[in-house]
Write a protein that binds this DNA or RNA. Structure first.
Lengths: 135, 135
DNA sequence: GTAGATGCAAAGTATTTGCGACAAG
DNA sequence: CTTGTCGCAAATACTTTGCATCTAC
């Protein structure tokens, strides 16, 4: 039962403006992990009057209520991705910038173990692998 | 045989200016992971004439030649840490911001396995755990 | 002596914000 | 209606850079 972003907004009592609907749609349709600029480009094609400030405000809002996550991959700009059921981490191709999503339950378990060991409850984590494709 | 940053600079043919020596010393003495601003504060106490531009230029240089690493933890600012023999990852206390360094060989191995699985050679990785202290 | 480093201030990026106009509930 | 959002441009925050001067080697 994967809800759409729009449904999530309603569930969380967020006002659904035209702009937010468009931004939500663009994010849902994005398989990659676009930065705000790229998001703005895509959104502009649908409605050219939307300002980049609104895009910034919206992704921030979506992040705060847990609809999307923010990534700070190498390169300065923050990049966003919709959260859906399946948690995953990222394997990034250093040469091409291509991003592969993966899940490894064993690593997940070990992370919890590490946190436990230091007396912490694990809330969140970030795992990024950087590599080059083998020939 | 852990070399000092100064020794590493000489080994890599980097000109050792007074400013660089000071910045190197401050970084070596820092157990935490200071951002450029904080580094600049500490450096200024030793020599108040050093400009923040030099700090930026120096950390960038040190990063390029592999003397320090840059982290993009939550919070926007880039933070730096000296590289020494022991690789480690970070467990960050969400409430206090405290950073615990840890190593887990099992996780390291699994990361390589994941990269392999997708046909990649692992070059680098970043693992950050965010948690809260248990009472 | 010479190539490269520094300081300063100005210029870039990325992101946030104040404010009057406007739209969702 | 009322509260919160939008668009715009100005403001911030972080980082980089041009240029004249200075310094390590």
């Amino acid at each position: 039962m994967s809800e759409t972003i729009e449904e999530k907004c309603i569930a969380k009592g967020i006002k659904l403006t035209e702009q937010r609907k468009i931004i939500a749609k663009v994010m849902s349709d994005s398989r990659d992990h676009p930065d705000v600029d790229e998001l703005y480009n895509r959104v502009s094609k649908i409605d050219s009057k939307i300002s980049i400030a609104t895009v910034y405000r919206t992704v921030k809002l979506f992040e705060e209520v847990g609809i999307v996550t923010k990534h700070d991959f190498k390169g300065g700009k923050a990049r966003y991705e919709e959260i859906n059921e399946s948690h995953h981490d990222h394997l990034i191709d250093i040469k091409t910038g291509e991003i592969i999503e993966f899940i490894d339950d064993e690593i997940e378990k070990l992370q919890n173990k590490v946190a436990e060991k230091y007396g912490y409850k694990l809330i969140d984590h970030k795992l990024e692998l950087y590599g080059i494709k083998k020939k």
